[in-house]
Amino acid sequence: MTDDVRNVLTALERISEHWQPHRLTSVNDYDVKVVKLKGEFVWHTHPETDELFLVLSGALTIQLRDRDVLLGPNDVFVVPRGVEHCPKAPDEVQALLFEPKGTVNTGDAGGDRTSALRELD
């Protein structure tokens, strides 16, 4: 896959479900994921890793226990490892995530929103 050209917008067009990240490509030991978000996710942490959000379209709020971080198109925010957070988006958001391979979307929370990483065809 490292020799393939991938188009982010085309990849996002192929995603129909919210909160289901798909691997776009990998860089060293990190996955670059595309995802559509809508509604409120679950409160969770990633004890072993930071999590980078890059919003491509829409407005995303990353709720932290001590503040809310508001992101719009082209905004980047890194949730530090071990920091409890809960993303929410009243309207659809399209985003890129950068995380180490194997990072689970619900972190330590688990539950029915946990998604196996999906591959784009």
Rank of each mutant, 00 (worst) to 15 (best):
T45M: 06
D29A: 14
E48H: 14
L96D: 10
P21E: 04
T2M: 10
R67H: 04
W43D: 06
V27G: 12
R113I: 07
P47L: 09
P80D: 14
G72I: 06
L37F: 15
W43Q: 09
D3G: 04
W43P: 00
L117G: 07
P21V: 00
D112M: 06
T103F: 13
T10C: 02
P90V: 03
V78A: 08
I15S: 05
D31Q: 11
L70A: 08
T49M: 08
L37S: 06
S115Q: 15
G39Y: 08
V78I: 13
G82K: 08
C86I: 02
T45S: 11
D108C: 10
E99M: 04
P73T: 10
R6S: 08
V55N: 06
L96Y: 08
V79T: 03
V32I: 11
S57D: 15
K88C: 15
K101I: 14
D50E: 07
L24Q: 08
V42A: 06
Q63T: 06
H18K: 11
V104I: 14
K33T: 01
V35R: 02
N7P: 04
A95W: 15
P90A: 14
H85L: 05
L54T: 12
D75L: 07
E99Y: 01
T114K: 10
L37R: 09
H85M: 04
E84F: 02
E84I: 07
N105G: 02
G110A: 10
K33S: 03
R23C: 13
V104H: 09
Q20I: 10
Q20F: 13
P21M: 06
E17D: 14
P87K: 05
D112E: 12
G58P: 06
P73D: 09
T2A: 08
A11R: 06
R65A: 07
E84C: 06
K88S: 13
V104P: 02
T114M: 10
D3Y: 04
L70Y: 05
T61P: 00
F53K: 10
W43F: 01
R113D: 12
R6D: 03
M1T: 10
T49W: 12
D66I: 02
S57Q: 13
H44P: 01
D3I: 04
L54F: 12
A109Q: 14
L96C: 10
K38L: 00
T114I: 07
W43N: 01
E119L: 15
L120C: 05
Y30D: 10
L60W: 00
R23G: 01
N74W: 14
H22E: 10
G82F: 10
K38V: 00
G39A: 09
V35N: 04
A109N: 12
Q20K: 13
R113L: 15
V32E: 03
Q94W: 07
L9M: 07
E51I: 04
K33F: 03
V42M: 07
L37P: 00
K88W: 12
A95Q: 15
V93M: 00
Y30A: 09
